[in-house]
Amino acid sequence: MIEFINVSKLYDHNVRALSNINISIDKGEFIFLVGQSGAGKSTMVKLLLKETEPTSGRIYFKNKDITKVSNRKVPYLRRNIGIVFQDFRLLPQKNVYDNVAFAMRIIGACNKEIRRQVPIILSLVGLSNKAKNYPNQLSGGEQQRVSIARALVNNPDLIIADEPTGNLDPDTAWEIMKLIKDINNRGTTIIMATHASEIVNYMKKRVIALNRGRIVRDEEKGVYGNEA
């Protein structure tokens, strides 16, 4: 479903963030992206979201070369991808329900669909009883559940999570991890960039390790490893 072919990324001032990346990810896979700080994990995420362009190489998403997608079409690309950040990025002036419904309204869903879908997703992430709460009335773990619900609500093919447990205590991190695994079990492809070695080692999923912008390891049922 996703393919990076000879992808390199050079930021301004000649910072080489990625060198000659080649990977292929199938539908339904669960990928951990590991590597030291500055290794290029977030850059790969940004390339998939077309937040930035590769200096060279091609990137395919659902058989389409997204490096050729015009800027005007970027929103439609992003609608196929749910995104979860370390800092949750919820809208503070909207309650839980509206934060999730917002993602549906933006793509023009009608009220009927919204009223049906949002409660289903909220119960999936275990937040049915907090629908009316505002983000500042929630714990970090709960806020991350809201952001996962928002990523999930439009049934994307892919969910990208950039250090989703980075701001959470270990117990909460594990709960979030379980939720993401459940989502993967339902068939959604997951790419998760993380520094959480225990989680990676326990989950036994495919691990892609980056070091200074190069892929140094790509293995099924991998571990966190010492290069990261």
Binding site: L49, R72, R79
Partner: peptide, 16 residues
């Protein structure tokens, strides 16, 4: 800005 940023990540068009 944050709000706009989030809207863009969720797939809102510039027009919206």
């Amino acid at each position: 800005k944050r709000e706009i940023n989030i809207m863009k990540y969720v797939g809102a068009t510039d027009g919206f």
